[in-house]
Simulated scan of single mutants.
Amino acid sequence: MKDLPTNVSAYKKTPEFTEETIPVGLLKDHNTKAGVWGKIVILSGELEYTIQEPEVEVIVLCDSNHGVVEPTILHHIKPLGSVRFYVEFYR
């Protein structure tokens, strides 16, 4: 998993989600547009974050380990029990 580039700025943030309120689209493969990065911020609990390209990479995210979403790269998440998180978008 890559780090956020230093030359991007946050411009939008999702509401806080739980294992019961995660939008269905986040649970299946999806991507961001070209030039749009994401940061998955865990407030409590854990999420399994699967990056599909260029190789499959599975990472467990927690409050001390956020996820970075690269532009146009297919990925999905899966809650591992009770979880609270949000996603910030950067460009």
Score class of each variant (00 low, 15 high):
V56F: 06
Y11V: 06
T72D: 09
Y11K: 01
H30M: 03
K39C: 13
E55H: 10
S9L: 11
N7I: 00
F17H: 06
P79F: 04
I22K: 03
V41M: 09
K28M: 02
A10R: 13
I42R: 10
G38S: 09
S9K: 15
I51K: 11
V8Q: 03
E16W: 01
K13F: 00
V56Y: 05
E57T: 06
V58A: 00
C62Q: 07
C62S: 15
I22N: 05
K78N: 12
G45R: 01
E55W: 03
K28T: 03
I59S: 05
L43P: 11
S9H: 07
P71H: 12
W37M: 14
Q52F: 03
G25D: 10
K39H: 11
V69N: 06
L61S: 05
I40T: 09
K33W: 01
P15D: 14
S9N: 15
T72Y: 03
L80H: 10
N7K: 05
G38A: 10
H66I: 02
H30Q: 02
V36Y: 00
G35Y: 07
H66F: 13
K39P: 04
E55Y: 07
A10M: 12
V8A: 03
E46Y: 10
I77K: 01
T14N: 06
T18Q: 07
G38I: 08
H66N: 13
K33M: 14
L61R: 04
A34I: 12
N31R: 12
V8E: 05
V8R: 02
T50S: 14
K13A: 11
E20D: 12
E19T: 10
V56P: 05
E70K: 15
K78G: 06
